[in-house]
Design a binder for these strands. Structure first.
Lengths: 206, 206
DNA sequence: AATGTAACTCACCAGTTAGTTACATTTTAA
DNA sequence: TTAAAATGTAACTAACTGGTGAGTTACATT
């Protein structure tokens, strides 16, 4: 086997990237440590040196994955939109993020099947979602401005929004089979985005 | 080990029930044949006698699971509802089914993570969904009667409806952590049902 | 009582798994 | 210069895995 350059930081990163691909594809149980080592082009021993165990490696991957979502959501906070514009922008952002980052979708699903057992071990700080707070506040403001329905609860709307986006990606394979069209394709996803936007706005707006 | 009563049909069923629990909990990779045998209270050898392989057993479970969904959907066809009543009834049905049958939810999710590889092997007949056709026809009729928006596509609406229901169950564990409330609880699910109904009707109706 | 067979048990295998260890090489710092 | 710490390799192990060969038991038929 060819020698690796000595670079602890790079090696750690290579392991994380390989592990994410392996965990996304096969889950915690199905993933093989030897496979991760081979994919990272590193010796298996280093995985144990850097991460300690397969489980600990998985937790690091989970953390990294949520960090990506947080980074994407930061754009929402920066844009400082409100009302209908904000809702549209949020849906665009989630659709684009989930369409691009299929490993994120897979790992979240695996974590759900695992009853979020490992997510629970993550420090609370890694789970704070400033974007959720911002969305809730914007909905409340929209109600005050008389553009959103008063009877709606901000938290419920935020939940509806996120679930409506996510399900298009988490279940696209089985639904493709059931509906007889490839829902994973870029065109179908674009269509789902338009549809989701229309649905959310019809629901929210007076 | 205690002797089993000789009953091929019962044994087959015991294996299927045990396998579904094991596959739902751990997926195809994570499930252990020995565990299924222990859970079914049967000798492992019989699993191979009846089903041939772990994969073949999984496919049988997948088939059984979809049959349950089909049976639940049959009630939609029987009720012969239309318009807003139908939409409400469909949401009720999916919510109630998914809330009760958590193993269904898990297995569908696993199958999606597996890119529906095993679903593709199932005979097309097991995947026909008369309920979907009925819903699409009812939406078209609603448009003619002037109660539903004309610009909507029936197929898109059916998709929105199913995804909006499913995501509440598939992602409840991670979302519970993110939103700081137990979205798997009966009360929260009831709240999500009300919300989903309001959203779909606002979206569909003129 | 003898026979045939479906249902079943037991003991085992060959391959795989996460994790470890002995040892070699390189970097760092005094 | 040199000792120690860090980084790397490859061989190893103990436990586990899906799957199987061979033999046993219950029971119906003759």
């Amino acid at each position: 086997m060819s020698k690796r350059e000595r670079n602890a930081e790079q090696s750690r990163l290579d392991i994380l990237v390989a592990a994410e691909a392996e965990f996304a594809g096969k889950g915690l149980y199905g993933a093989r440590v030897d496979e991760i080592a081979a994919l990272a082009g590193i010796n298996k021993r280093m995985i144990y040196a850097y991460f300690g165990s397969k489980e600990a490696l998985y937790k690091s991957v989970l953390q990294a994955v949520y960090k990506r979502m947080e980074a994407a959501e930061a754009k929402i906070l920066e844009a400082r939109l409100d009302g209908r514009d904000l809702i549209g922008a949020v849906i665009d952002l989630y659709f684009d993020f989930l369409a691009r980052d299929t490993q994120f979708v897979s790992i979240i699903m695996w974590e759900n099947l695992n009853k979020a057992a490992y997510l629970k071990d993550l420090p609370a700080q890694d789970l704070e979602r400033p974007a959720f707070t911002y969305i809730r506040e914007a909905i409340a403001a929209g109600k005050d401005q008389g553009i959103f329905r008063l009877e709606l609860d901000e938290q419920d709307v935020a939940l509806s929004l996120i679930t409506a986006c996510f399900a298009n990606f988490s279940n696209c394979h089985t639904l493709s089979r059931l509906f007889g069209r490839d829902l994973c394709s870029a065109e179908q996803i674009e269509q789902r985005k338009i549809e989701t936007r229309a649905m959310m706005l019809a629901y929210l707006c007076l």
